[in-house]
Simulated assay, not measured.
Amino acid sequence: MALSSLDEVRERIGKAARLAGRRPDAVTLIAVSKTQPAPRILGLVSAGQRVFGENRVQEAEEKWPAIRERHPDIGLHLVGRLQSNKAEEAVRLFDAIHSVDRESLVTALARAMAKSGRRPDCFLQVNVGDEPQKGGCAVPDLPRLLEQARAADLPVAGLMCLPPADTEPAPFFALLAKLARRHDVAGLSMGMSADYESAVMIGATHVRVGTALFGQRGTEDG
């Protein structure tokens, strides 16, 4: 019998983890459900998937309260860029935010957490390819951003990156892993549908997979 898309992704994560001498359960699969309607999401929920990712606060506000009312054990991660003026909504909705990349956002998130009492995990996004069109702090600016985040008492869970498209991603994953070790950060949010196995081999703790689970949709993440 053919494997479901979820089973196949899980199996590949497990194989990559074992080849790297890691435990498969050390890797969190984030099913990137942006643009996906609730029935398709619920199909994965029924199959046992419990961590999902969205790119935009507004879309998450429209879809997820009703789903999570039925399934309160679901974890929801923001994997897209976040505007500082949406920090309160993001802190209220999400259990983790993967795109913290500037001091103004650190300040806004710290204020929102203090106000709400909720403390979602925060991943600092690093622009490992030095691409001007992408979010993420520059590699040389990471120590300062990390210092600011820790001083603001953000729950820093790890680092996140989006390698340049159409380029071998492994060196960029290795760079992020090196930065995490250097700065004593545990989490590594890296790897999408085309390269999550490579990311797991290099140490990813979170992979953000959309297309391999939901099918092609012509968007940049997952």
Rank of each mutant, 00 (worst) to 15 (best):
G80D: 04
I74F: 02
G80P: 11
L145H: 04
L162P: 01
V106C: 14
Q36T: 11
L146R: 10
F52Y: 14
R81Q: 15
P140D: 07
M113S: 09
M113F: 10
S99T: 15
S116M: 05
G135A: 05
V126R: 04
R144S: 14
G80Y: 07
D73A: 13
A60V: 04
R118P: 00
L142H: 08
L109W: 09
K115V: 11
P140A: 09
Q125A: 06
V156E: 07
E147G: 14
A114F: 00
V100T: 12
L146H: 09
P37Q: 02
Q148I: 13
E59T: 04
E131F: 05
P65L: 02
P65M: 03
V32F: 06
R68P: 03
P39V: 03
Q148W: 12
M160Y: 10
Q133H: 12
D121V: 10
E103P: 00
V91E: 05
H98V: 07
L29G: 07
A26F: 05
V91C: 07
Q133Y: 00
E54I: 02
A87T: 04
C122N: 06
T107W: 06
L93H: 11
A31Q: 09
Q49H: 03
V79M: 12
Q133S: 15
I30W: 03
V27N: 10
Q125L: 13
L42Y: 00
P155N: 12
V139Y: 03
V79G: 11
V139R: 01
L44Y: 06
G43K: 08
E88H: 13
V126C: 05
T35G: 04
L76D: 09
S84P: 01
G135Q: 06
L44W: 06
H71W: 12
N127A: 11
C161D: 03
A138V: 01
V128C: 07
M160A: 10
L78G: 05
E69N: 02
V57F: 05
A112N: 08
L105V: 10
K115W: 03
E147V: 01
R70P: 00
Q58M: 01
K134V: 05
R40Y: 02
G43W: 02
V106F: 12
L78S: 07
S84D: 08
L109F: 11
A31V: 06
D121N: 13
G129N: 07
Q148V: 13
I97V: 11
V32I: 14
G158Y: 02
C137D: 01
L29Q: 09
V106D: 12
